[in-house]
């Protein structure tokens, strides 16, 4: 365990350059755009020069780039940046929107687990049969279908035609335990709220997970085939092990690469889904970033990017730690 602590500390240190790099790139791109954000924030063409000047001073819009970057990061860290668009502190904005993204991610991930893994296993077991071919084609469609197209198609079906889902509001129960309505409703066994949440989130969750389902099915299939053709499986047969036990060996070996991909996918989904959230009008991190971009609010954008990068790195770290529990060959 001492090794584990050293490993985690070592990895946490490597977070720093990554976070600086990511935020710096976003900042530079925003800063070199030949537009005056202050004018946009102040109200566009009719903005008074005094207000613009004041905003420029307030938000350090002029001057040395490195200095401005340092100022922004320092202020973000101490939570002193007020978004000129929402007039809230950036971190508060993010904290407020994160539960939406988290719920969307959880639901998307459930689809990925419940559909992607079984489809991959079935395809591997029925290798080269019509079932396998069908699943592979579906997986390919999943990977290559544009999200917005599928989203509107399914909205037409489930909202316009069948009226199964809702497209407005974000259900929030009157109580709060974790701050995430989905988890709270589950903990309290509040099926009414749960139903509302599901009818609001299940379609966007499916859309968001759709690509992941295809990717997962393909990876599960391939890693299963690899594990099934491994020499130790032949030896397990030669030892006279029962079928179920042989499958256990196959399953555990096949899951090693799958866990990595799933972990990274989860981290990636948590970073917000701009297109899905925009189409379904969900006020999550992705939508927040889009709005910030429209309004030249690069302060909030840098904050959001910082937040997403942090989440992704953490997911990565968790995967690496999990790895050692699955695979005894991995040590820190």
């Amino acid at each position: 365990m001492a090794n584990l602590r050293r490993f985690i500390i070592r990895r946490l240190i490597t977070f720093i350059p990554t976070l600086i790099g990511v935020t710096f790139i976003v900042f530079i791109i925003a800063a070199v755009i030949p537009a005056n954000p202050a004018r946009v924030w102040a109200g566009g063409q009719k903005a008074s020069p005094q207000v613009i000047k004041k905003l420029e001073e307030e938000y350090h819009l002029k001057g040395n780039l490195l200095e401005r970057y340092y100022w922004l990061i320092y202020k973000l860290f101490t939570n002193q940046i007020v978004s000129p668009r929402t007039h809230h502190y950036v971190w508060e904005d993010l904290a407020y929107r994160f539960p939406v993204t988290l719920q969307l991610t959880i639901i998307a991930f459930i689809y990925i687990l419940l559909l992607g893994i079984p489809l991959g296993i079935v395809a591997a077991l029925k290798r080269d049969s019509w079932i396998d071919t069908t699943i592979r084609i579906l997986a390919l469609i999943g990977v290559s279908t544009p999200v917005f197209w599928l989203a509107y198609l399914l909205i037409f079906l489930f909202f316009t035609q069948l009226h199964w889902i809702t497209l407005a509001g974000t259900p929030v129960p009157p109580y709060s335990i974790t701050g995430v309505p989905l988890i709270d409703a589950l903990l309290k066994l509040d099926f009414k709220t749960l139903g509302q949440i599901l009818s609001r989130y299940s379609l966007p969750g499916f859309i968001l997970g759709f690509m992941g389902i295809g990717v997962t099915a393909r990876i599960v299939r391939n890693s299963f085939l690899d594990a099934m053709s491994a020499d130790f499986v032949e030896y397990a047969k030669a030892r006279g092990l029962k079928k179920l036990r042989i499958y256990r060996h196959v399953l555990r070996n096949a899951l090693v690469p799958v866990v990595t991909v799933l972990g990274l996918m989860f981290g990636g989904l948590l970073g917000g889904a701009p297109i899905t959230e925009r189409i379904f009008g969900l006020p999550g991190i992705g939508n927040y970033m889009l709005q910030s971009i429209y309004q030249y609010d690069y302060l909030a954008l840098t904050g959001a990017v910082f937040f997403i990068a942090l989440i992704y790195l953490t997911a990565n770290l968790v995967v690496d730690i999990l790895y050692a529990f699955i695979d005894p060959r991995v040590r820190y």
Partner: peptide, 18 residues
């Protein structure tokens, strides 16, 4: 495995690594 047993060529891959 009980009456007739095998030993294969490569011990590095005969055993399950996990």
């Amino acid at each position: 495995g009980s009456e007739i047993s095998y030993v294969f060529q490569d011990p590095n891959t005969s055993l399950d690594p996990l």
